[in-house]
Amino acid sequence: MKTLKILVGVAFVIAISAFAIDKVSDSKAKGGYVIGDIATDFELKNIDNTLVSLKNYENAKGFIVIFTCNHCPYSVAYEDRIVALDKMYKDKGYPVIAINPNNPKAYPDDSFDNMKIRAKEKGFTFPYLFDDGQNIYPQYGATKTPHVYILEKTTKGNIVRYIGAIDNNYKDPTAANEKYVENAVNALLKGEKVPVEITKAIGCSIKA
């Protein structure tokens, strides 16, 4: 009887483990990173026509990578907050890297020339990169604009520590009482675990 109980317990543990593995596998199958993955670097054209990659930031502790665009009303609503995040965390080692993932043939407002105009109008203080060929956003698994990925720079590589929304109220920044990105970066700067690692990104679908 005791042996039977042990066997049942072992079977239960194996089943739970298999479920956890399947859950991660399902996330992988859908494409994109999960928490704990190491993000590969990229080299994309910035609005000043230079090429930008994460390896350029030798002194960075990590990155706030945000997939965003010109036309999406959600992205527009968050522009000032994205600028504020860069000003708040760039000097602390977590600069914003914005990437436009949209196909300009589908949405001409998101063309490279219009990216330059928008960045100048809004006074972007961060690189605004063009995912020409749309090769990078599928690697990350981004589906919306905006969609945030916080990476922690380590000796092993840039580890994904947070995926999701900037906060919990796109309409009114003063009404947002869950500032997911700020909370995540603050925790990382203290050497602590990110309190909320995944949230649902709210925005426009990426245009292929």
Score class of each variant (00 low, 15 high):
157 G>T: 01
157 G>P: 00
164 G>L: 05
140 Y>S: 10
110 D>V: 14
111 S>W: 02
162 Y>H: 08
102 N>H: 04
98 A>Y: 06
136 I>H: 11
149 Y>H: 09
105 K>R: 15
115 M>G: 02
109 D>Q: 10
119 A>N: 00
107 Y>Q: 12
131 D>S: 04
134 Q>H: 06
148 V>W: 14
139 Q>V: 12
164 G>K: 13
140 Y>I: 00
106 A>K: 15
128 Y>F: 14
127 P>F: 13
99 I>N: 11
139 Q>R: 10
152 E>A: 12
139 Q>E: 03
125 T>F: 13
117 I>T: 03
142 A>R: 01
151 L>A: 01
134 Q>Y: 11
138 P>N: 11
102 N>P: 07
140 Y>M: 10
113 D>S: 09
139 Q>K: 15
136 I>L: 15
158 N>M: 08
125 T>H: 09
137 Y>K: 04
148 V>N: 07
157 G>S: 01
151 L>V: 07
136 I>R: 04
157 G>R: 05
98 A>T: 00
141 G>C: 03
127 P>G: 12
126 F>K: 07
163 I>F: 05
154 T>Q: 03
129 L>V: 15
125 T>G: 09
154 T>D: 03
113 D>Q: 14
152 E>D: 02
101 P>S: 04
104 P>L: 08
124 F>L: 08
139 Q>N: 07
103 N>P: 15
131 D>M: 12
119 A>W: 10
114 N>C: 04
109 D>N: 14
105 K>W: 11
107 Y>K: 15
116 K>N: 01
105 K>G: 05
161 R>N: 13
123 G>T: 14
157 G>W: 00
141 G>L: 01
150 I>Q: 09
118 R>A: 09
117 I>R: 09
148 V>A: 03
112 F>V: 10
117 I>C: 02
120 K>Q: 11
144 K>A: 09
117 I>S: 08
137 Y>F: 14
152 E>L: 09
117 I>N: 08
116 K>E: 05
139 Q>T: 13
100 N>P: 01
130 F>W: 06
155 T>H: 11
100 N>H: 06
118 R>P: 10
127 P>H: 06
120 K>H: 04
106 A>M: 15
160 V>D: 09
101 P>L: 01
100 N>I: 00
103 N>T: 12
138 P>L: 12
155 T>Y: 10
135 N>M: 13
113 D>Y: 04
161 R>K: 11
131 D>T: 06
133 G>Q: 13
160 V>A: 12
